Amino acid sequence: MPPSDAPAPTIRPAAPADLPVLGRLGALLVRVHHDFDPLRFIPATPETERLYAGFLGTQLQEPNVVMLVAERDGEVLGYTYAGVEGNDYMALRGPAGVLYDIVVDPAHRAQGTGRMLLEATLAELAARGAPRVVLSTAERNENAQRLFARAGFRRTMIEMTREVEGDAG
């Protein structure tokens, strides 16, 4: 944990040079979710960091994507990945900003970095015309749920999962 007089992180757009760290953080996200519910969430593999970084790299120049990083002294502490989407009839919603990922390195949590990333992402989505922002969070991710509730998010959907019995193959 940095000293209390450490400067606040800078929030900036993600760049290609950030991708290795974003891949590591994305793989962390995969591992944490799999630990929450291994039947619902995919496991991380030795390739997850590289594949996640590669995927995020394809999103950097997408016009409807917002990808921000929190950085202090040249070190990326966390990131958000979000997008502006049109009508989604499967989700029964109109145009919205969608927050896909928000993750802060565990060594830098509980210092306001997640809140700063979330606020900057919400502002950028609003600037791009998103009339609302939606997100999903794992049922067991209580820390994230507290962050989102403090930021004014309300519960609107509950995902439920059931395994199909028998051989699917």
Rank of each mutant, 00 (worst) to 15 (best):
P16Y: 11
M90P: 10
M90Q: 15
R93M: 04
R115W: 03
T48I: 08
G86S: 08
D88Y: 03
D105I: 04
R109N: 03
P95N: 00
L135I: 13
A8V: 12
V84K: 00
E163N: 08
A14G: 10
A151N: 04
T121P: 05
A123M: 09
F55A: 08
V164L: 13
G86L: 11
M1K: 09
E49W: 02
A8Q: 15
G83I: 04
E124A: 13
A127H: 01
G114V: 03
T161D: 00
R140N: 09
L22T: 03
L51S: 13
P9S: 10
A144Q: 13
D167F: 05
E163C: 04
T137D: 01
V98I: 10
G74V: 13
H34I: 07
V133P: 06
G74K: 08
T58I: 10
G94V: 05
V32A: 08
S136Y: 12
A149K: 14
R12H: 11
Q145T: 09
G97E: 10
I102F: 14
R162T: 08
A130H: 01
G169D: 14
V76M: 02
F148H: 02
V30R: 01
L135C: 12
P9Y: 06
G152N: 10
L56P: 00
P95K: 00
V133T: 11
N141R: 11
L125I: 13
Q145I: 10
N64H: 15
M1D: 06
V66A: 07
L92Y: 09
L117A: 14
M90D: 13
A123Y: 05
M160E: 01
L68F: 14
R93V: 06
G26W: 04
Q111V: 03
G169L: 15
R155T: 11
G57W: 01
M116F: 02
V104E: 10
T58Q: 12
A14F: 09
F41M: 15
A53S: 07
G86F: 09
A91H: 09
Y89P: 15
R155L: 14
N141H: 07
N87C: 14
T45Q: 05
T121E: 04
L99F: 01
R24W: 14
T113S: 02
A120P: 01
R155Q: 11
L60Y: 03
L25Q: 00
V134N: 02
R128S: 04
E71P: 09
P20R: 08
